[in-house]
Amino acid sequence: MESLEEMQSRHRKEQKDLQSRVTQKKKNTSKKTRKGVNTECEELERQLKERQAQELSALNGESLEPPELEADESANEESADTAQGNDVNGVADSLASNSIFEPAESENGDGKAGGGKKRNRAKERLARRAAETAAAVEEAKVEAQNQPDIKALERKKISSQFESHGLVEQMIRPDGHCLFNAVADQLQMAGIPLADDGGEVERYKTVRVRAAKYMEEHVDEFDGFLEEPLHVHVRNIRDTAEWGGHLELLALSRVYGVDICVLQDGPMQTIEPGEGYEKKGKEGKEKEKIWLAYYRHGFGLGEHYNSLRKVSSKVAP
């Protein structure tokens, strides 16, 4: 039979393994699956804590015997767990205001005090559970502090690529329009008009409209990659703060005839417009390249794009 020390050691390993799984799941999530992954992780943590508490209780070999309803011990255990086990804060308050044992001058072999009252085993068991939970929480905090700083590591890897390409970062506000604002900044730096009609509107809106229009007119190129109907996606890209991604960059690459180079935590990604979309610059120059930095973890709202300008270019404050 497993000893208490062996069980506690196994529990610590299970908690560590679960923390690693949770970290990996959250690292690989996207904006569309983030909510479901967080819910799944919370449920896994809850199930582990509940199972470990049950194993410790079984190892101790104690059953609940509340003094109020001695004739039905199983009903008493369920009632005690429901009334006090669902709220850790309530347990802490209860422990602060009550003693674990009922007051008595002596206790005989059957657990009854000298005055005829039984020990409140439910309260003792809840106290142990609360202590075990608090210890597990503290251990998880220590382990979390020892985890690598994902944001710092990502920024370090991306920043190291700037120098090799002669680039400096132009910060873009993280407001849901970052991809379109970053592309607009790059196009303007390259001297490429955002719209053919020269209309004066906010630049990210112009780029959104151009991307949405292209996708709407080329259904076969995009429809198979979407989880929602194309017309719904197009409307969201055109009229809301819906985040843009690879499909929108592909559409913009073809609309403006540019290569879009994306520096990220990993190999650089280059999105090319393809045959039939290549444009020549003045005096026969090859099509322009525009540069973006893509962060998966570095910003509070999630995925984010910044504009990357040549070092010789003046960077706005």
Results as ranks from 00 to 15, higher is better:
E45A: 09
R309I: 08
D81Y: 08
G176R: 10
V207R: 04
L153G: 03
E6S: 09
D175T: 04
A104Q: 05
Y214G: 01
S164Y: 07
E288L: 14
L153C: 00
A195C: 10
K25R: 12
A316Q: 07
A184S: 15
R208A: 11
S79N: 08
G61H: 05
W291Y: 13
M268D: 14
Q84A: 15
Q186M: 08
H11E: 12
Q8T: 14
Q52H: 11
E107N: 02
S307E: 08
R10W: 10
S94Y: 09
G109P: 07
A152Q: 07
A182V: 10
K49Q: 13
K280N: 14
A251F: 05
K27F: 06
E278Q: 13
H304I: 10
F222C: 09
M215N: 05
S312M: 06
V168Q: 08
D110T: 06
P273R: 00
H11T: 08
K25V: 07
L95D: 02
H177R: 11
V183D: 01
D110R: 03
K16F: 11
K156E: 08
L44M: 04
K289P: 06
D259G: 15
K157M: 03
K112S: 03
K151R: 02
D17P: 14
P174A: 06
N28G: 02
G224W: 15
W243R: 06
N60E: 07
V168P: 02
R173K: 09
P229L: 15
S97L: 01
E6F: 04
P174Q: 06
G198Y: 04
S106E: 01
K112C: 00
E132H: 12
E2A: 12
A122P: 13
V255G: 02
P103G: 02
A80L: 07
L59P: 00
A96N: 01
L95G: 02
K151N: 01
A53C: 07
G111V: 03
A122D: 15
E216G: 07
K280S: 10
E286H: 15
R51T: 11
W243C: 01
G36C: 05
T270S: 03
N98C: 01
E286G: 14
Q147R: 11
